[in-house]
C-alpha cells in the first residue's frame, strides 16, 4: 500500500515538472531571455508572476524554461552514464582476467575522490557550457554503473542459459548482448531514476559555482547564484522558486526510485 502511494507521488511530481517544462512557451508571454527595462528587481505582479531579476528578466518564464535544461540534461547525462557504464561493466565482467582487474582498479581510483570534487576538476578542464556540464555529470557517474553491472554479469555468466547459449554456436559478443546484458540490468533499472535527482543537484551545483550554463540561459543553479545578493534585500522571488523546483525534482526522483526498488525486492522474494 504505502510504497505504492509513494511511488505514484514521485511519478506525479516528476511528470508535473516534465509537463511544465514542455509547455513552458504556452504558460508565459515573456521569453526566458527577454529583458523588460521598465521592471528591474520588481516583486511579483500581474505582469511578472514571480517578479523580475537584476537584469529585468521574468523569473516565472526563466523558471519554466530552466526545467527544460535541468531535467533534460540530467536525464540525458544519466542515460549516457548508464550506457557507457553498462558497456564497461558487461565487458570486464564477462571477459574477466587482467582486463577486468585493470579497469576495476582505475574505476576504484576515480571513485576514491569525493564525487563533487571530481566533478569540479573535470569541469575546470572542460570549461563551461551546457554540453560540457552534461559530460561532467555523466563521467562522474560511469564508475558506479560499471561496477553494478559487472557484479551482476559475473553472476549471470555462470547461469545455465548462458552455457546453453555458448554451446549454440553464436559468438561471445552475441551471448553477451542477447543474454548476459539484458539479465544484468536489474540493479541499474532501480538506481538510474534515483540518480537523475542526484544529477540535477550536481548540475545546479556546478552552475551555481559558475562552471555550467552561461548567464543569459535559464538554469536553476545560475538563477540561485545570481539571486544571492537579493536575499539580504528581502527579494525572495529570485532564489526561492528555483530552489523549490530543485527540491521537488529531487524528491520526485527519490520516491520513484525507492518505489521501483521496493517492487524489485518483492518480485525477487516471491
Amino acid at each position: 500500500m504505502a510504497p505504492g502511494v509513494l511511488t505514484w507521488t514521485g511519478a506525479v511530481l516528476v511528470a508535473a515538472v516534465a509537463i511544465l517544462a514542455l509547455a513552458a512557451p504556452l504558460l508565459t508571454s515573456w521569453g526566458p531571455e527577454d529583458i523588460d527595462p521598465t521592471a528591474i528587481r520588481q516583486g511579483p505582479s500581474s505582469e511578472h508572476l514571480l517578479g523580475t531579476d537584476l537584469n529585468g528578466m521574468d523569473v516565472w518564464s526563466r523558471l519554466l524554461h530552466a526545467a527544460r535544461i535541468d531535467l533534460g540534461l540530467a536525464i540525458i547525462s544519466v542515460a549516457v552514464a548508464v550506457a557507457v557504464g553498462a558497456a564497461i561493466g558487461a565487458l570486464t565482467g564477462y571477459v574477466g582476467g587482467w582486463l577486468d582487474a585493470l579497469v576495476m582498479r582505475i574505476l576504484e581510483i576515480t571513485q576514491s575522490f569525493p564525487t563533487f570534487i571530481l566533478a569540479l576538476a573535470v569541469a575546470v578542464v572542460l570549461g563551461p557550457g551546457a554540453v560540457n556540464l552534461g559530460i561532467v555529470v555523466a563521467t562522474v557517474a560511469v564508475p558506479s554503473y560499471a561496477r553494478l553491472v559487472r557484479t551482476e554479469v559475473r553472476t549471470v555468466r555462470e547461469l545455465g542459459y548462458v552455457d546453453a547459449a555458448r554451446t549454440s554456436g553464436i559468438s561471445n559478443l552475441a551471448v553477451l548482448w542477447r543474454h548476459v546484458l539484458p539479465n544484468s540490468l536489474t540493479a541499474v533499472r532501480v538506481v538510474a531514476p534515483l540518480n537523475v535527482g542526484w544529477a540535477m543537484l550536481a548540475l545546479a551545483g556546478l552552475s551555481f559555482l559558475g562552471f555550467g550554463v552561461p548567464v543569459p540561459q535559464p538554469e536553476w543553479g545560475v538563477m540561485i547564484s545570481e539571486g544571492t545578493s537579493d536575499i539580504v534585500a528581502g527579494r525572495w522571488w529570485t532564489t526561492v522558486p528555483p530552489g523549490l523546483a530543485l527540491v521537488i525534482c529531487v524528491l520526485g526522483f527519490s520516491l520513484l526510485g525507492e518505489g521501483l526498488q521496493e517492487r524489485e525486492t518483492r518480485r525477487r522474494s516471491r
Binding site: 547461469l159 545455465g160 554451446t167 549454440s168 552475441a174 542477447r178 539479465n183
Partner: peptide, 29 residues
C-alpha cells in the same frame, strides 16, 4: 555437431526470451 540437453530445464532458458528465440538460436550461425 554437438548439442546438449541440460539438467535444469528452466535454468537453461533465458527468462527474457521466448521459446522461439531459444529454439532458433543454434540456427543463427
Amino acid at each position: 555437431s554437438v548439442q546438449m540437453v541440460f539438467q535444469d530445464p528452466l535454468g537453461a532458458l533465458d527468462p527474457r526470451r521466448t521459446v522461439l528465440d531459444a529454439i532458433t538460436e543454434p540456427l543463427i550461425p
